[in-house]
Design a protein around this nucleic acid. Structure first.
Lengths: 226, 226
DNA sequence: CTTCAATTTCAAAATTCCTTCAGAAATTGA
DNA sequence: TCAATTTCTGAAGGAATTTTGAAATTGAAG
């Protein structure tokens, strides 16, 4: 799960980020409107936690832009203004939840979980590729109804592949998705190889086929069996 | 896909180039206005990433010149000046997107992809010649609905042929398009023969016809079956 | 502190791809 | 038809990428 926290207060965003990383999310921070939009273009997020008070723009506009361009992304509004107006307007614009400052990190976590749960219950709670099925509410992955025992990285990887069945994912983009923005200057992607290997082994154990196709010089994708 | 990066800062342009090569683009660099124009005349680009700050001229003028002389080329403006004016003026002059420095390379990549996607959607995101269909968003090529397993060079080659169905492509121009400016002094284009051969074989495997016509003494083109 | 699993690093092995080369085949023009 | 030029083909080497196993590191749990 990859989150973007849009929050201009340095200290707070750093806290949130480290806390959510602890909790197992891949979490990045944007300090303002501009940066948020750039990151949204560049990467692929599952959720945005959005502070309405931004130094260079209106948070509501950003919310509107997100719902327009990336409708699949959940938005959790964070705001110091405890004004009911904001809350109503935000939810009307399609925000998935609203959290007033100040808040406990544990509560943020709970809200995030709740938003995902709610979203996945309405309809698309399964990601499927042939015999591979991921239940996005219980976070279980089965191959041919056999449950896979995956580590966190393996899980994130198979999810990323499932979400992008039609395109080839480069090692770079996989690394960015699983590790966040630490990878900017990374020179080696050896660990991607390892996780691919382990994932393949586990999938193949459940069914002879490993499904993951190498595209030489580019990356990986699920291969269609024709 | 062949890109020209117009950027006078050595280190940056070198980084961009190596990154985009990694990502599978053919990428060349021009350090100033003059050099950019020369390259635009000499070669055929799909896109220009243009830094507005140039040592020997105004980037806006260059943008205007590109849109006038090579209207098919997409332009992505890069600028350190975060001025909204620049952005507005640039987009008014026909630039396809705008990216403020500093930026993550991944974001540059995402913008490039987005620009192409947008452009291709206006018509269709498919390149077609008879039974050959190339999906430019998934980077898949099918012949008679059979998926081809192509290497990078083969892919670039068939794409170049698809984009130029009416003209004959010389070995030189193919080499320039696929390998960039390393070819300036090259004396032998034998490797083009190899890739043509391999491509023909793979296409013919999917359908008896190989489609690629040799024009003796000149080059190659798709042949129409009458 | 110890233990165990997960993650990352490292280097060798395996694979795939690219380029070169030399000879064969095809085309052109005289 | 013949010679010159161009294109085609297969094989071989080298370069780049991926795979693999094993060791080192990290991190959480007991």
């Amino acid at each position: 799960m990859k989150l973007l926290v849009v929050e201009d207060h340095q200290q707070l965003s750093a806290n949130i980020k480290s806390y959510l990383n602890q909790e197992g999310y891949v979490c990045e921070v944007a300090a303002n409107y501009q940066e948020a939009v750039e990151k949204l273009y560049a990467y692929q997020y599952d959720m945005v936690a959005l502070d309405l008070m931004l130094p260079d723009g209106n948070g509501m506009d950003l919310l509107r832009a997100i719902k327009e361009n990336w409708p699949a992304i959940c938005v959790l509004i964070i705001s110091a203004k405890n004004a009911l107006d904001d809350k109503i307007q935000g939810l009307n614009l399609g925000a998935d939840d609203y959290l007033a400052k100040p808040f406990h990190l544990a509560e943020l976590n709970a809200r995030i979980k709740a938003v995902f749960r709610r979203k996945n219950q309405q309809g698309d709670d399964k990601l499927v590729f042939e015999e591979i099925v991921m239940n996005t509410s219980t976070f279980e992955v089965t191959v041919n109804d056999q449950l896979l025992d995956l580590t966190r990285k393996e899980f994130e990887m198979i999810q990323y592949l499932l979400l992008n069945q039609n395109r080839v994912l480069t090692k770079q983009s996989i690394a960015e998705h699983l590790w966040g923005d630490y990878m900017d200057t990374a020179d080696s992607f050896d660990f991607v190889y390892q996780h691919i290997k382990n994932l393949r082994k586990k999938v193949a154990q459940a069914k002879g086929n490993d499904y993951i196709q190498t595209v030489y010089g580019v990356g990986y994708k699920f291969k269609k069996s024709l």
